[in-house]
Design a protein around this nucleic acid. Sequence first.
DNA 1: TTTCATACATACAGCCTGTATGTTAATATG
DNA 2: CATATTAACATACAGGCTGTATGTATGAAA
Lengths: 195, 195
Amino acid sequence: MKERRSNADRSNATRHALLDAARELFLSEGFTAVGTPVLVKRVGLTRGALYHHFADKQALFLAVVEEEAARIAVEIEDGSAGAGSSLDALIQGANAYFRAMEIPGRVRLMLLDGPAVLGPDEMRRIDRETGGRELRHGLAEVMRRDGDDPEVEMLADLVSAMFDRAVLARDVSTGPGDYREMVAAVLKKLVREGK
Amino acid sequence: MKERRSNADRSNATRHALLDAARELFLSEGFTAVGTPVLVKRVGLTRGALYHHFADKQALFLAVVEEEAARIAVEIEDGSAGAGSSLDALIQGANAYFRAMEIPGRVRLMLLDGPAVLGPDEMRRIDRETGGRELRHGLAEVMRRDGDDPEVEMLADLVSAMFDRAVLARDVSTGPGDYREMVAAVLKKLVREGK
DNA sequence: TTTCATACATACAGCCTGTATGTTAATATG
DNA sequence: CATATTAACATACAGGCTGTATGTATGAAA
């Protein structure tokens, strides 16, 4: 019997199928290592379908990274929700971020391939709209400053860089001990006073 | 008339010619964008020569990155030499690093392509042997701690992450104002007390 | 019902990487 | 000094991948 589906349904279905397969492969093998032939074969489609839905391989990758960033942001939000003080919310959010980045392949996807393939300004844009927002607001609250204060924004950026480096260091585990305590200590020192 | 050179001389000459061309191209176009055919054509050789001297494209890239890291380390050393206090040396070293990263293409080479292509552990190794050493020692001196203290090492790593993010932010200039002052302020806060 | 657009498949052209093989000149050996 | 061997490169080959152009069938629209 033949399936009879609307065009919109078909599009959405294959789009998501492609995205799911792409996510899985990019996570497990990295951007350059996964070729479009194997990608589409996994879904049972052809490269024609892929290039009909996405401009090129990079556009597909961008969609995957954006989706992953959104997931991570949700995990941070969930992890920091219901904290006592605003400083606690910050620390718990940081820990949630560390946990989120334990998902295999996420470090490479978000911190290595992403910046190299999409460029730092695109990654910054994505971060600002997802996980970075949490950090910025949390920091602003602790410091009793406005969230749009450029100084707060810069500080949030620098702090997020430390988070990422800590995550990276643990991922390869070739450095010294536990970065999380050190990050927490640094964080406390930084927000101790308003300026 | 025929040139008559020793094998060792020939090897060294072509090796450096390849490295120079690779450096120039990787700096101006990035790792993936430069193909080996155009690379060798620029030197007047063939791909055979390249693959005789380097295992693969990645090995050539590694050599370029290591060389560049060494250059940057020298520039930092020169920039921080002859500083008054040890804190001044730290600040001047940071400024020297910022200046060093103004060379076009260096940001992409060292902070984007490098980590993505060589991996974070390899980049960490290179950094430890070059620029990172300066920072670690400078930090240890300011804090009156031992340079091999793992806590100092971790802190140096985190601080270097902030430097890199600041450099990246300025490179794309899509963020808020001047990160250098913010980095300096953060640095002063961090080293204020021993622990 | 006919016309048009959408969703996909097929086929093609170009490029790149890594390897295998050939050639010439330098070096080692007897 | 003659010869054997190795090093330095060039040439040629075998995949593999990306992006585009073209073809086809099905849903939507007129």
